[in-house]
């Protein structure tokens, strides 16, 4: 177990380093931060001075090392755009994204799992067919279209829900939450639905397929032959065997939710990491972009690592194969 775990962790660290390097390289080719920092008619002297203070005159490898050294001691650098520490900027935006991600995860679970189970057990019922039909829309419609449609209906036409922002937030000192005010909850509805739509349909379709497959497997048929109650067969035996892969995939989907939120956040002017990322790209704010990419990479890697580390608990055979 220890060997298995340490090998996984070492792999994760290597991949994180690679992500950091690729992120840094991409970003160093993104454009000229001087364009947004200096007025167009700045003198060559001003320009040279700023290039020197930003270390833009050093070779890429040197800049990467400096950057990495900073990362290790928790110094993420200073944003070119707002002149504020990157760590503070990211920390300030993180709560918005995390709350949005959890809200859409909750919707995914509360809506996706029951509907998926229903469609798996009664695939031929009218409701199941309707759900499957509608879910095609969820899979195919791009997020920004869904968001704009929801805004058009619920904000513009009906005037029920706000079309942008996060409402009133309450600062708890370390975490700025929108979950303690009515306007915060109202603001959360549309973005959370937008972000969860793809995940919901994804989960419905996956559970349905899994259940239908398990339903045909021998142990279910055997249970049926023994006269076990149908309810018990589905909810105890079949569902248990279906949920394991669903949970694994959901954990990874959570990473996706955070990464996909760039589009949703843009449409709803949701002040999270995704909005920060887009604003930073527009102004070639390299330090923020690199750190964002690394953080998203780290979230994915961490979720992946957790899933991998939990495999031996589910199935001891993975350990034996490595030994």
């Amino acid at each position: 177990m220890f060997r298995y775990a340490s090998a996984r962790i070492a792999q994760t660290v290597v991949v994180l380093l690679a992500i950091a390097f690729i992120g840094f390289l991409l970003v160093s080719n993104l454009g000229d931060p001087l364009a947004s920092l200096l007025p167009p008619d700045a003198t060559p002297q001003d320009r040279a001075a700023l290039i020197a203070t930003l270390h833009l005159d050093q070779p890429v490898a040197m800049r990467f090392l400096t950057f990495l050294k900073g990362l290790l001691v928790g110094d993420f650098g200073i944003s070119y755009r707002s002149h504020e520490p990157v760590a503070a900027l990211i920390w300030e935006r993180l709560p918005a994204t995390v709350e949005l991600a959890f809200a859409s995860l909750a919707i995914t679970l509360l809506v996706g799992v029951p509907l998926g189970v229903y469609c798996g057990i009664r695939p031929r019922s009218a409701l199941a067919k309707a759900v499957m039909f509608v879910s095609i829309a969820g899979v195919t419609l791009p997020t920004f279209v869904v968001g704009i449609l929801l805004i058009a209906v619920f904000s513009v036409k009906l005037g029920l829900l706000p079309s942008f922002g996060r409402g009133q937030t309450v600062d708890l000192g370390f975490w700025k939450t929108g979950l303690l005010t009515a306007s915060g909850w109202r603001a959360l509805v549309l973005p959370a639905i937008t972000l969860s739509l793809f995940q919901v349909t994804f989960v419905i379709r996956m559970i349905r397929t899994q259940l239908m497959e398990v339903g045909h497997s021998e142990f279910i048929r055997f249970a049926r032959a023994r006269g076990v109650e149908a309810r018990r067969i589905w909810f105890v035996h079949a569902l248990k065997n279906t949920l394991l892969p669903v949970i694994t995939v959901l954990a990874l989907q959570f990473g996706n939710i955070i990464a996909f939120s760039v589009v949703t956040e843009n449409v709803f002017a949701w002040p999270g990491l995704g909005s920060l990322f887009l604003q930073s790209i527009q102004t070639a704010d390299m330090p923020v972009i690199s750190v964002y990419l690394i953080i998203i990479g780290a979230i994915f890697m961490m979720l992946n690592l957790l899933v991998e580390l939990s495999y031996p608990l589910i199935d001891q055979r993975v350990l034996r194969e490595r030994a």
Partner: peptide
Amino acid sequence: FFVIPNPSARVSALVSGE
């Protein structure tokens, strides 16, 4: 003063009266 980067979201915010 609000920051709404997406142009259609900005228009929606005005049309909805926000």
